[in-house]
Amino acid sequence: MEFSGFKAINQLDFQVRPNTVHFVIGPNGAGKTTLLDVVCGKSQASEGELTFRETYNLKKMTENQIVHRGISRKFQAPSIFEQLTVYENLEIAMKQKKSLFSIMKAKNNQVDEQKLAEMLELIGLNEEKDNHAGSLAHGQKQWLEIGMVIMQDPDLVLLDEPIAGMSKTERTRTGELIKQIAKDRAVLIVEHDMEFVKEFADVVSVMHEGQLLAEGSMEEVQQNPRVREVYLGRKVD
């Protein structure tokens, strides 16, 4: 995966590798969320290339087309469907043909049902599966949304501050969930919580004012003098 030089985020050049938990950190306004927006098609990059598996040019696709190429995104605020049950939420998120006519005929086969059951287990919402998603606790809503993202079986998952507003135990569970899902795919996470990043990151990219400042493991990044200067120096240590 390559994203080379968007003007919008000023000459950003970076790659995400499969099976990694890749964190993007940086002070407010660094362009972290914009980066996700551009990748998932919410915003358009004015210049540069945006390729996925070296074959797809994402710049020309709509949001739903990008999803079908294997990139899924979770937004910062939980945006699940509160009027539907937990199960139904996962059901409509599931990887399937999402054209009108396929949906009209759609029925779960055994494989689908097993996938749904496994996901309920993974996100720990088995007991809640027939309850309206609106009745879930904040952390559970976040997990459900992560579950919905993974149901699409993407190769690249984009998560925007998945642990915001969570309790300590919920954070740990979320971290483990992220590790689990990164076994089969790349996960790109925007996060502010340094403790969390330290614990779960394989790769960390530091952004500042729309540019990539440093990339590497958490230790490497922390040692980088420029990073210390503009960002970590003020916050960590």
């Binding site: 999803v67 937004f75 945006s79 009027q83 539907l84 409509i92 998120a93 919905m148």
Partner: peptide, 18 residues
Amino acid sequence: KVLIGVRDGENRMRFLGY
């Protein structure tokens, strides 16, 4: 269910591939 999804979160549905 998909229609309710469109009603309650049209953008979210886009990012689910609809």
